[in-house]
Design a protein around this nucleic acid. Structure first.
Lengths: 155, 155
DNA sequence: TTCCATGCAAACACTTTGCACCGTG
DNA sequence: CACGGTGCAAAGTGTTTGCATGGAA
């Protein structure tokens, strides 16, 4: 969240452009957003940036470890900025669409188990757990299509 | 795996068609397959079934609880037949593409934790955990695109 | 005979790519 | 002033839909 992402860009031979700055800013502001939502957010603050640039930039930022994506719906991937010392994973309610961020440590035992029994090294930051809030009325959405809310109960 | 899926279809007012039979058979045979892979498998045993029929049928079968899907790649959903008393979830290696099915009980403690701390009821059957096999060479695939193997270490 | 299911083709949503121009370093 | 980045438009994927025909019940 400091300024060192500029250094990180350059050190990898990437250039620092206004578009990249705007897009990283948008991802940070939105917390969890699809490429399209990022695109919309960027437009709110500046003249148009092309959607393909959003896609290309998100890819670059992800390579640099500045953002990550997870699949929170059956459709689009969702990007979020990375807080280096606060990896989290997501709970996604298929009734109300609520996305909850949960701190990595909650999955620690589970991850250890998968490692011991299956020799599998889990990428917690990419984990998305689907289900329903216990307090969520059973009947809001029949299928698991469009989420209707995207609030947060974050970190 | 008995024949009661025929009854289940009818009891819900659905009709029993050769296409539905072929598609359910294909999903069962393939273990984990995308709609497209199902389509190919069906063609091997019969004259063409339209791809859109595959999509519509998978949706019906899922509603009936005969198949499920999970997102095992960044692209297509993967369908598998349901074994009523053997819910499983998946580990997906992003290096070699190996998909491992793991019995529900392995996630039991984790699921309980999410319920207690977050009031969240996990849908274990939909769970896909991404990461890497510990024995997997780090460098097989750079990005998390196409899986190259789809073997199983099943139930 | 009645509707549900299917095939076909067109429409869709999302993402990627080729190319000429632009602007950072 | 060179080369990576961007905008634009077109092409790709994967999935859904409308409509006429076909077949299960």
């Amino acid at each position: 969240m400091t300024d060192d992402w500029r250094a990180r860009l350059r050190s990898q031979g990437y250039r620092l452009t206004p578009q990249r700055e705007l897009i990283l800013q948008a991802v940070t502001t939105l917390r969890h957003a699809t490429p399209d939502e990022v695109h919309v957010e960027v437009r709110r603050h500046s003249t148009a940036v092309n959607l393909s640039t959003v896609y290309r930039t998100l890819e670059v930022l992800e390579q640099l470890g500045l953002v990550r994506h997870a699949h929170l719906t059956d459709r689009a991937p969702t990007y979020h900025a990375i807080d280096d010392d606060h990896t989290h994973f997501h709970l996604v309610c298929r009734n109300c669409g609520l996305v909850t961020s949960v701190e990595e440590s909650v999955a620690a035992d589970f991850v250890a188990l998968l490692d011991q029994h299956h020799g599998f090294v889990t990428d917690v930051g990419h984990l998305a757990v689907f289900g329903t809030c216990r307090t969520c009325p059973e009947t809001v959405v029949a299928h698991d299509h469009g989420p209707h809310a995207t609030e947060e109960t974050d970190d």
